[in-house]
């Protein structure tokens, strides 16, 4: 790692001030950032740990809304979020990673194979920062790109609790990231289907599947529907066609789990 200064503020206002310095970088749980620094792929002048900020902690459910602090760890989400999201969080990485990695850190990184982005698109989320509120649908902007401005911090996240939801992930066995992951959420006004891990454009909502499932919430409703293999990721773990196939299978499994 290159040298950097370390700061650990205790309020959001102090963190925002600390991040105003050129080349300062926010540190969530560090489960992606520290390995990145070890490879010298980043050279921040200063790391600003968000782990000491009490107002960014906690997971709670009230009036049909799930509210999670940006500093909530995956383990805390797994313990206290609504069941489908808790199950997703319980299968991120391994227990030691889940005790450090945070929701806000993962969302700000927007890894195309991360699990949370699919949940955020499916669960009608709102990403709350120190400066504004961003609709989940507008937040993710391609591989490792988000709507966040320089120095902007995810302070909390709200999701609307669905009538039913399920996440199916086909994990790459070494990294446990998603080769493909599909989050299906059923609301009174329709079904939302979000896909992670598969597309070259990052997480996306699969509108054709949403329309079919909104009309008929059954695995058979997805018969004959597929994502365009041309836009899927191809790498040593799987071809474009393989990922497109996985997406269709995982979507059916998610619906079958709820039917």
């Amino acid at each position: 790692m290159y040298e950097f200064e370390f700061e650990k503020p205790s309020t959001i206002a102090e963190a925002v001030a600390a991040l105003a310095d050129e080349d300062a970088q926010a540190l969530g749980g560090g489960q992606t950032l520290i390995p990145t620094l070890k490879q010298r792929l980043a050279m921040p002048s200063k790391l600003v740990s968000l782990a000491g900020i009490a107002e960014m902690k906690g997971v709670s459910i009230a009036d049909g809304v799930l509210t999670m602090g940006g500093g909530a760890t995956h383990a805390e989400v797994a313990a206290d979020a609504c069941a489908p999201l808790a199950a997703l969080a319980a299968n991120i990485g391994d227990p030691a990673v889940r005790n450090r990695g945070t929701l806000g850190g993962s969302l700000a990184n927007n890894d195309p194979a991360a699990d949370y982005p699919a949940a955020m698109l499916a669960l009608k989320s709102t990403i709350v920062t120190n400066a504004r509120e961003i609709a989940g649908d507008d937040f993710f902007q391609g591989l490792f790109e988000t709507a966040l401005e320089e120095g902007e911090i995810i302070t909390s996240v709200r999701c609307e609790i669905p009538e039913a939801a399920n996440y199916q992930k086909f994990a790459q066995p070494a990294s446990r990231f998603a080769l493909a992951g599909v989050f299906v959420a059923k609301y009174a006004d329709g079904v939302r289907v979000a896909v992670t891990g598969a597309s070259e454009e990052g997480v996306f909502r699969w509108s054709e599947a949403e329309a079919a499932l909104s009309a008929n919430f059954a695995p058979d409703a997805l018969a004959g529907i597929s994502v365009d293999a041309g836009s899927m990721i191809a790498d040593l773990h799987g071809s474009k066609e393989y990922r497109a196939h996985l997406v269709a299978v995982l979507a059916k499994r998610a619906v079958a789990a709820l039917a």
Binding site: G30, S49, V97
Partner: peptide, 15 residues
Amino acid sequence: GKAVKACTMLAMEAE
């Protein structure tokens, strides 16, 4: 009280 990977945490984070 929580298991963590000490190679992926900074010493100063454990202050």
